[in-house]
Design a binder for these strands. Structure first.
Lengths: 294, 294
DNA sequence: CGTCATCCATACATTTTTGTATAGCCAGTC
DNA sequence: GACTGGCTATACAAAAATGTATGGATGACG
């Protein structure tokens, strides 16, 4: 334990990894290129591994370096979290909070909630990150998050909001053009906008619905926002959160019997309970999302 | 992004936090005491926060410093993971792997599995950590783990082993002395060895069993191993994993109708799929635990 | 009440790290 | 084929960090 690597070298290593060359990394960190070269050299000596193959066009990361990348990124996430929370004062509600939410929630639901939160807590700067990986919270990429799965980590402070209902929607002009489907089996002849099967909560949610196949979609996107925009533009039929459709009634519901529940949780790292700014945002999110659901 | 804190200062900060004084931290890191003093000073300047109140008896951490501690610990966990995995070669099955398991599994089940794993992969050094927090995996305190809850993190690679049955057991000498209980309600008059309610999977597991209260236990311990040892020593009646009792038949089952299922999963960080040593241990655990259950 | 051990802060010499400048190498491009 | 712009590696001076030594202050202990 007495001869560990200089943590600063990890930082330089990550910069080189991201920038692809010593020179670029040096610029990004505000250091000199030989310094970065030495850092990498020392790190390689300390780890006993070759991290880059040098070439006059830049440095190419070896497999070993690529394998180590997530760990260094995790280090940086923690370091950034430290900077955020150090500036936050412990007595007044102020500081910077990183909020991770899914795309649709972030774009459609958050703005209103954050606007009123801003008025209530003008001292808090919110960094909104569109991402849906629960991992972020534990890696400290985000402080507070809105998630679609129940967290099992004990370290996380979680509050269940309820189930957001998902329904099928289309633009009235599309239905006028194509007529309305009468039953689920009719959907095959319509233009369906597809969700991304990769997301695990969607896999779970649609577990009981055999008829959905990737092939039947006329438009697929890994972005739920793109899907929503397509439906709104009259492309075809797709899923939309029911509360969203009610709030802005530009879409017409199709086959109301089709309904998927989407669990919704507000989650925060337990460590942050004592950070007034995080706690305040957490509470504001719970309140805002509850009223969104109602 | 150009004026970030020197990561090395975080390392010094953590050492001071843990050791309680600059001098002790300096000894622990192999540095001089003034160096640590400067590091802390620079970090305080960079963060704009007072981290310690100086006194001739040592440094006392402020609330701000305490709040930042988990973040720095997370950084160190990542740094240590880097060191571990850098030494691991990518082609041969060798290196160091940290394995996190619960107490009982670690003490009663792992030795046999690890012994045969050792023969199969002599190049792999296993660090066995007794801990049950899933968080460890994401914080990279552990590379592979055996867990009692289904992981929901997408970043984790998980393999379900099955349900370990828990039953009530007692030493034959105890039953001889006190007679055997006939029904669950009889238990109140026996000496019960209690499990720790704090563990969430136990809360979940015993959700359907109202009669268990903390007060009825004659001996409670947050260590499941202590409970098991007490039961084996003839203290009274307590829970034991059925496969364990079968393997070493020193205990007699009581009220066989009482049975709790304990889910068992082998979990690994997805990043480590390409690390031969981690993968090999993962596979060995799956195989070993499956045969433990059978 | 003095002794001793422990702690932090400071001053100064030394070592280490860093930056500047330069040379050399490769890939486009005119 | 020379030119330009990107890169790394090396040499050397400047700057920064470190270690040593010392002073002062506190608490434990006989």
């Amino acid at each position: 334990m007495d001869d560990e690597t200089d943590w600063q070298h990890y930082r330089s290593f990550l910069a080189v990894l991201e920038e692809g060359s010593l020179s670029a990394a040096a610029r990004s960190l505000g250091l000199a290129q030989p310094t970065l070269g030495r850092h990498v050299q020392l790190l390689e000596a300390a780890l006993g591994t070759t991290l880059f193959t040098r070439s006059p066009t830049g440095l190419a990361a070896t497999d070993a370096a690529k394998a180590l990348r997530p760990f260094v990124e995790s280090m940086r996430a923690s370091a950034q979290a430290i900077d955020r929370h150090a500036h936050a004062s412990r007595d007044t509600v102020a500081g910077t909070v990183r909020l991770g939410v899914s795309e649709v929630i972030g774009i459609e639901v958050m703005p209103a909630i954050l606007a009123s939160f801003r008025q209530a807590c003008p001292g808090v700067v919110v960094e909104l990150v569109l991402s849906d990986r629960n991992q972020d919270l534990l890696q400290r990429d985000a402080d507070v998050a809105v998630r679609m799965v129940a967290p099992v980590q004990e370290a996380l402070l979680a509050r269940r909001i309820g189930a957001i209902e998902l329904g099928l929607y289309a633009h009235p002009s599309y239905l006028e053009r194509r007529g309305e489907p009468r039953q689920v089996s009719d959907l095959a002849s319509y233009d369906l906008v597809g969700f991304d099967e990769a997301l695990p909560y969607i896999r779970r949610m649609s577990a009981g619905m055999p008829p959905w196949h990737r092939d039947m979609f006329a438009l697929r996107s890994n972005s739920n926002v793109v899907q929503l925009a397509a439906v709104r533009a009259g492309f075809g039929i797709g899923f939309c959160q029911v509360p969203l459709a009610i709030r802005e009634p530009v879409l017409a519901r199709v086959l109301p019997s089709v309904s998927l529940p989407l669990e919704c949780w507000v989650v925060m790292h337990g460590d942050l309970r004592s950070q007034p700014a995080c706690k305040a945002l957490f509470d504001a999110l719970v309140e805002g999302l509850l009223s969104y659901l109602a």
